[in-house]
Write a protein that binds this DNA or RNA. Structure first.
Length: 554
RNA sequence: UGGCCGGUAGUUCAAUGGUAGAACGCCUGACUUUGGAUCAGGAGGCUGCAGGUUCGAGCCCUGCCCGGCCAGCCA
């Protein structure tokens, strides 16, 4: 059990919060969710569910710039897709009036003041880590004057940036966040929900704890970078006449994954720079991207449960996530055959024109999924990678004179090759053994490999997108560099002439199948001239490992 | 440079002050009509460093080292 769940259990036993558990998931609607958010969603909704409590989705819409209803809708969709009920979303903007009343309360108490300094001056006056801040010349205005000024701010009598409301705390505080933080800034900008009702907007710090308190949140879980903000969170709550229990903030480590980026800034740069197609590009760690790529929500949830929650900032290997995706699809994905880079095989001893339907299991892991029929004929496509004219050691597949098994078919021997002017292999002349239709040779001879195939006369065409790491560096942007420096321009390879077994045409958009020996592939949802499949993740590939090791070694 | 928080196999996490474990990855073998899956086994650690307290320290204390966050009218 992680430290947060232990804490929640302890609170329950101690009767803190009257035994209640209430959490919240509070994204700002200025972008879509990524897998880092998924960790938080699983934590917040999970903890609440485990204690019969509730978890609400609250949009932290305190800054009109960049926020949009489309993002809010998308976020709610993504949460539902992940497997949690977002319910009717709450909004911080619903509390603007209450927040404002509390601000006047602080002003009256002498705990907040209107500052006329501009942003630059305020920043300079804050000092730095070693030098204490200096008081603003407006710090000692009377409550009466401050109240009048705050009302004028709200009434729109000042322009953007002319004045701010600041909490009056301590300009020499060792925690920089406590050096009279800004509570309200003036923004004459429309808000996607509140419209033009306000021209002053609360900052994150001034809104967050109060929103938690208003909703009755008990455990306010956020990421580690808000550690320093907790002191402020508690200070505001301490000074206000709250309706109920005071919520408690607890921080945990955000999720980082190797070879990708999670920050909104970096994601935005990829999208705006045209380096990816959009928020739902299958290479992105966004929930929309992962969904399109074929990552099942169950696997994402299992991954989040597995990595747990702690207070150590680290980076998880993307391979771990992928292993969860494989584990899920291995159990549920239907097996099909597809040839990505076709090489023609002519079976010379196949009865001319004859077509046979071969029966293949849909999923050997689950016999209940039954079987399907796949047409077999004297002209096939096989994978170019499955043939080598001069095979190196440990290459078990087809080569001149060598025999392999065709999956759900027969043993096949390569008798001869037809080559072009540059020595490239154009076609394989082969023969099959009619006695091996059951997968075994009656004489007991063995083959080292089983390869996949598609009947050339029956195959359908498809486009297949293969993906590589979006970033070459395990940690893009490490030691302060621009993450985009390690962007991998070859992160997507589009194969437009793949040959697929005809049954694959029936695969519903959005679903994931296994192309035998190649990996899991998600059929794209967009209609197109020919079907498009995204490779979700490859299979464990021993031969690829051998090659990689050979490339690295000697 | 000040404050806060961290530091345990390659990685991410466990371990009431009492024999340092798991998962993924890696290696070997078994099985197999996917070089997949499954099963069995293996390698991998001076618990950041140095002192101290204790019968006994990954855990408590002190100092040092390394990393993260904080000087937005972003969240």
């Amino acid at each position: 059990m992680d430290f947060i769940r232990k804490q929640v259990v302890a609170d329950g036993e101690a009767g803190t919060f009257g035994g209640r558990v209430q959490t919240r998931f509070p994204p700002e609607p200025n972008g879509f969710l990524h897998i880092g958010h998924a960790k938080s969603v699983c934590l917040n909704f999970g903890v609440a569910a485990e204690h019969g409590g509730i978890c609400r989705l609250r949009f932290d819409d305190t800054n009109p710039a960049g926020e949009d209803a489309a993002y809010a809708r998308g976020i709610a969709e993504d949460i539902a897709w992940l497997g949690f009920d977002p319910g009717v979303p709450l909004h911080t903007s619903e509390y603007f009036e209450q927040l404002y009343e509390w601000a006047e309360h602080l002003v009256v108490q002498g705990l907040a003041y209107v500052d006329d300094q501009d942003a630059e001056t305020i920043s300079a006056g804050r000092g730095d880590f070693t030098t204490p801040g200096v008081a603003s010349p407006w710090r000692d205005r009377s409550p009466t004057e401050n109240l009048a000024l705050l009302r004028d701010m709200r009434a729109g009598r000042f322009g953007d940036g002319e004045k701010v409301l600041r909490a009056r705390i301590d300009m020499t505080h060792p925690n920089m966040l406590m050096r009279d933080p800004v509570m309200y800034r003036i923004r004459h900008a429309g808000h996607f929900r509140a419209g033009d009702a306000w021209c002053i907007y609360p900052t994150y710090d001034w809104a967050h704890g109060q929103s938690d308190a208003i909703e009755g949140v008990t455990h306010s879980l956020c990421t580690l970078e808000f550690e320093g903000n907790r002191q402020l969170y508690d200070w505001y709550l301490d000074k206000l006449p709250l309706p109920g229990d005071r919520p408690r903030q607890t921080e945990f480590a955000r999720l980082n994954l190797t070879h990708t980026v999670m920050s909104k800034r970096a994601l935005g740069a990829l999208i705006d720079g045209g380096l990816v197609d959009g928020w739902d590009d299958p290479r992105l760690p966004t929930l929309r991207g992962l969904r399109r790529r074929g990552y099942p929500p169950e696997a994402i949830r299992a991954f989040c449960a597995h990595i747990g929650v702690a207070r150590v900032n680290g980076t998880h290997e993307i391979e771990l996530l992928e292993s969860f995706v494989r584990t899920h699809h291995n159990r549920f994905a239907q097996r099909r055959m597809a040839v990505l880079r076709p090489l023609e095989v002519v079976i010379d001893n196949w009865p001319g024109g004859h077509v046979e339907c071969r029966r293949a299991p849909n999923n050997p892991e689950n016999p209940a999924d039954g079987t399907r029929e796949v047409p077999f004929s004297g002209r096939l496509w096989i994978e170019r990678d499955d043939f080598m004219i001069d095979p190196p050691r440990k290459f078990y597949r087809l080569a001149p004179g060598r025999e392999v098994r065709l999956r759900a078919g027969y043993f096949l021997r390569c008798d001869d090759t037809e080559t072009g002017p540059d020595g490239e292999v154009l076609r394989l002349r082969c023969s099959y053994d009619p006695t091996t239709g059951g997968g075994q040779a009656p004489d007991g001879r063995k083959v080292r490999a089983t390869i996949h195939w598609v009947s050339a006369d029956h195959a359908a065409d498809a486009t297949v997108a293969l993906y590589d790491r979006l970033f070459g560096d395990p940690v893009p942007g490490a030691d302060g560099r621009d993450p985009l420096e390690s962007y991998n321009p070859d992160s997507r390879e589009l194969i437009t002439a793949a040959k697929i077994e005809p049954g694959l045409l029936e695969t519903p958009p959005g679903s994931v199948v296994q192309f035998e020996r190649l990996g899991y592939f998600a059929r794209d949802t967009a209609p197109g001239e020919q079907p498009l499949f995204h490779r979700t993740v490859g299979l464990r590939d021993e031969w690829a490992n051998i090659q990689k090791r050979r490339g690295q070694g000697a």
